[in-house]
């Protein structure tokens, strides 16, 4: 009796806190996807960007192969490189998430570039982003949309 009431309490707490945690963190096998966010787009003709951190708690590396979002006709992970003050951008290709390590997609480095937007990314709303990994498979996470001048998760 006592144990089952503790159990139901724990389950209740988990259910109550679960949805809000899901925004911040999602797990897929050994991978933990943390703090996803996107920047509001300015119109629909310009590409938009989304960011997140992928942590690999496993003992084998995994690789991020592809990304997609329902709002954009084409999404890719792009990398910025700073060549003595000149910023260059291009597709990053597959992104390795080393065993026990993490990869951050953040302004000025890697980002999920969303092209051919079918609708604008509106501040205050959220966007679903699907990540496809070589070993862990696919996961869809929800990223809140911050203002066009946001530079980090709020």
């Amino acid at each position: 009796m006592k144990y089952s009431s503790i159990f139901s309490m724990v389950v209740t707490i988990f259910i109550l806190t679960g949805p809000s945690l899901a925004q911040e963190q999602a797990r897929l096998g050994d991978l933990v996807i943390e703090r996803p966010w996107a920047r509001a787009s300015i119109g629909t003709s310009r590409p938009a960007a989304a960011y997140l951190t992928i942590r690999n708690e496993g003992e084998e590396s995994d690789t991020l192969l592809a990304v997609r979002t329902p709002l954009s006709g084409k999404a890719e992970v792009h990398a910025m490189t700073n060549d003595s003050g000149v910023m260059r951008m291009g597709p990053a290709g597959p992104v390795e998430i080393p065993a026990g390590g993490e990869v951050s997609l953040a302004p000025g480095g890697l980002h999920i570039m969303m092209m051919k937007l079918q609708a604008p990314l509106v501040k205050g709303k959220s966007i679903e982003v699907t990540l496809k990994f070589e070993r862990a498979g696919e996961i869809t996470i929800t990223a809140p949309i911050y203002g066009p001048g946001a530079t980090r998760p709020e």
């Binding site: 920047r39 300015i42 003709s45 310009r46 590409p47 938009a48 960007a49 792009h78 910025m80 910023m87 951008m89 302004p107 000025g108 980002h111 570039m113 969303m114 066009p148 001048g149 946001a150 530079t151």
Partner: peptide, 16 residues
């Protein structure tokens, strides 16, 4: 340029 999704909004936000 305004079709720049990463560096330009970050720079404009820094400047702001």
């Amino acid at each position: 340029f305004t079709f720049c999704p990463d560096v330009c909004p970050t720079t404009l936000a820094d400047i702001s």
